[in-house]
Each structure stands twice: as structure tokens, then as C-alpha cells.
Simulated assay, not measured.
Amino acid sequence: MELRVTSGGPAEPFLGARDVFETEHDLEQPVEVHIRENPDERTWAGHYDDHHVLNISQQAATSAMARELALHEFSHMLRHERDHPSHVLSMDEVLFLALTGRSVERRVLTHCYQIANHVKDIYADDITLSVGPTDKLVAFLESELAAALADQPVAGPTVGQRLTAGADPSMTAVNAAFALALLERHDAVADDHRIYDLAHAAAEDAPEIDVEAFRERFVDLAADPDESDCRRGLVDAIRTYVDAQETTTGPAAD
């Protein structure tokens, strides 16, 4: 696996991730690591005809999670090279099928993309967690969920008026379902782990979201679905989420 760090920053986490990844897998195309200054854009992968790009913030590249984040992105790259349906399906097509005839708020449309990304992340981390330890991931997911719960919107004097943006309770509930599903797929937590209490709190904050149903949906994702099954599952998950939201006015998603 050819790896090149092209921006200023530490190379060790990426070389370490490569060494771990290569114990079980390999990438056909070379990887360029671009370290960015924007701390809000933690990591993302770009795929091109002859190479991949791992974009990572300076903050993330120098964090304790740097190696694990790189390993996660390498796994996305492998799924893309192997044409896994979750990574190559057209989201425009999925959204058209899921949202035809529906009108949704822009924030809900953004959440639809997040749900699709959860599916991608589960398939990527099925690779990541087959070669790497789970301890840091468990702590990371627990911390992220706790932070989202602490950042819930504050209601104003008028019912429904929000004085702070905060984390969206509906999406936090889906995120909780995703976290539990990912960890359960790899037997990474005991039944009495604190993350279950956090997920329960997230479910109470968003009673319109069936956290258990989303957890089961994510945990039961087939290891090797065909394109039709993957598309059908995404469409159903997105429709379920959109239908759980209150009727709102906003730009038509279709």
C-alpha cells in the first residue's frame, strides 16, 4: 500500500495505520494524506481514477484518535475499490426514491445524508474493527453521544421556540442507534455499559424516533448485500426517519 503525507503534520499515525491495515488488507491505488487547518472537518476520503485522498484536520491528525481515524478512512477506500453498493450507490437516486411526493425541511434532508453515511460507516468499520482494537472507538462514541445529549436545544418562552441551536434530538437518537449497532456487531461492549444509558436518554429526548428499530436495522445489515437490497434498505430507512418528523414547510426534496 503506497502512502504519502503531502502536508505539514505528523506522518507516524498514518504509517502506523497502514501497517495495521496491511496485516489483513491492501489498497490497489496509492493514498495521499492532506492535513487541513479547519478543525470542524475531521476526516473524509476522496476517490479519484488513480488514487485516494485522506483529508484530515490538523487537530485530528495530532489527536489520540489519529491512527484509528486513518484506519477508518482506509477501510472506506477499500469498500470503494471493491465497489461495495453502500459506497457506490447514487444518493441522488436513493433520495429521489425515498422522498418523491414528500416535502422536508433542509435540516431533515441533511439528516438523510447522515443516515446513509451511517450505513457506509458500519460497512467500513466492519473492516476497521477486524484489524484494530475497539477500546478507543467505544470511548469515542460514548463521548460523542454524551456531548450531543448535553447540547440539546433550549426551548424559549414560547413553546417550540429555540434559543440555542444545539444538537438535533431526532438525529442524536439515530446516532445512538448507530453507535449501539456498530459496537454490538463486534461484541465491543457489555450489556451494562454506560452507552446504553446514554442511548436510553437520547430515545427519551426524541420519542418520535424508534431507537430500537433503527438499532436493529443497522445491526442486521447484511455483510455482502447486492445493489438492489442495499438501495431498498436505504430508501426504507430514510422514509422511516422522514415520516417520523412532524409535517413542516420547506423546500421540496424531490
Rank of each mutant, 00 (worst) to 15 (best):
T6A: 13
L183C: 07
G156F: 04
E2A: 04
I35C: 08
A45L: 11
L198K: 06
R106V: 07
H34E: 15
Q245C: 09
R36S: 13
D243M: 04
D205V: 06
G46E: 14
I115M: 08
R162K: 15
D210P: 01
S75Y: 01
L97R: 13
P13A: 02
Y241T: 01
A150L: 02
E204K: 11
Q59E: 14
T128R: 13
V108C: 05
Y113E: 13
D236R: 13
A188L: 05
D135F: 03
F218H: 02
S228K: 14
P30N: 05
E93S: 06
R4K: 14
N175H: 10
E24T: 07
V219P: 02
F74P: 02
D243Y: 04
A190C: 03
L89H: 10
R217G: 05
T164S: 12
A213T: 04
L129Q: 06
Q59S: 13
A148N: 09
E216W: 02
V154D: 12
I209F: 11
R67A: 06
H47L: 05
S130A: 14
A176C: 02
D49T: 03
L15H: 13
T248Y: 07
R194P: 02
S170L: 08
A11T: 15
T6F: 09
I56E: 03
A45P: 05
L198R: 06
E142M: 00
E212Y: 07
A202G: 04
D226I: 07
H118G: 01
G9S: 00
R232M: 11
A203H: 14
G250D: 11
M91Y: 14
A139G: 01
A61Y: 02
E144P: 02
H186Q: 07
E246I: 02
P225G: 03
P251N: 10
S7K: 10
P225M: 05
V20K: 09
L95W: 08
R239I: 01
A199W: 11
R102N: 10
A181D: 12
P153L: 08
E204W: 03
V211Q: 08
K120A: 07
L182R: 12
K136E: 10
R239K: 11
Y196Q: 09
P225K: 01
